[in-house]
Design a protein around this nucleic acid. Sequence first.
DNA 1: CCGTTATCTTGACTCATTCCAGAAAACCTG
DNA 2: CAGGTTTTCTGGAATGAGTCAAGATAACGG
Lengths: 155, 155
Amino acid sequence: MMNQGLGRLEPREQLRAVGLRVTAPRLAVLDWLTTHPHATADQIAAGVRERLDSVSTQAIYDVLNACTKAKLLRRIEPAGHPARFETRTADNHHHLVCRRCDRTEDVDCVVGFAPCLEPSSALGFVVDEAEVVFWGLCPACAANPSARQNEETYT
Amino acid sequence: MMNQGLGRLEPREQLRAVGLRVTAPRLAVLDWLTTHPHATADQIAAGVRERLDSVSTQAIYDVLNACTKAKLLRRIEPAGHPARFETRTADNHHHLVCRRCDRTEDVDCVVGFAPCLEPSSALGFVVDEAEVVFWGLCPACAANPSARQNEETYT
DNA sequence: CCGTTATCTTGACTCATTCCAGAAAACCTG
DNA sequence: CAGGTTTTCTGGAATGAGTCAAGATAACGG
């Protein structure tokens, strides 16, 4: 809540704004993610270690979990892939994922605000979010049908 | 009334129709899933073992993978949960998942045919599926915010 | 009934992630 | 800016879901 605007702050102020302590691993993770959206914990760890050598894997997960809970980060989990994280949290946007190379891109919410879509029949559920993943092939993979692709068949 | 074609056949005929051998584990998995949609591999194994004692865990996974590849089953993987399977494969419907008790229900496709939604901007991706998960609370959990609900019993 | 080949069994193994206990660092307080 | 709390980080073990591999078994076409 009331964190639109947080996205514009520096990592240090973002952390303060949500009551989290300012630590080197946290700053490095947030900073790395601003330039590498949709990175996995693994990729984030590798990136962070380039500038801060020696950060435990557990610290990476702790940072990601704390920031996700505080809504400084958003976690997405496309089926069959490890979780990915992004700093764009103020809106309810969706994702486009390449079935072949896993490239992931943002797409704006189809309607504009959560839950953004209404199920045709909610069966009494109180729905608060419509999560949408568009699956397909990115331009590069679509243009290069020769390279070996995974098992999934797309009619 | 579920899916045209294969969905109406008995498991035995479904397997033959897609060129898979008819085996006891396969029949039991398909049969059990018709009455327990959205079950996890674990739940399916438990259910199958009630009528066929001694089926290896690996066999369960093999059956699920073979049938999913052959499109007799569909796999869904809500973020943070193990994969779930269902026999309704002919249409592109979506799901409603309870954040508290994991209860999962089908909802018809918002538009009616795959990909069912168009991203506002596909960035050149060739999209073949729009996967939608509606997150919220099921009626029971919404009505009872304190107690921890459990899922339908698989016996 | 036989042979071929798909499928199942057993058991080790991977990967992503979490749990744990203790050490270190942040930040409130004086 | 020292002291005390409390949060966070480290290192290592552990978990859950699922896969891999090698050999045994069973389907099914002939």
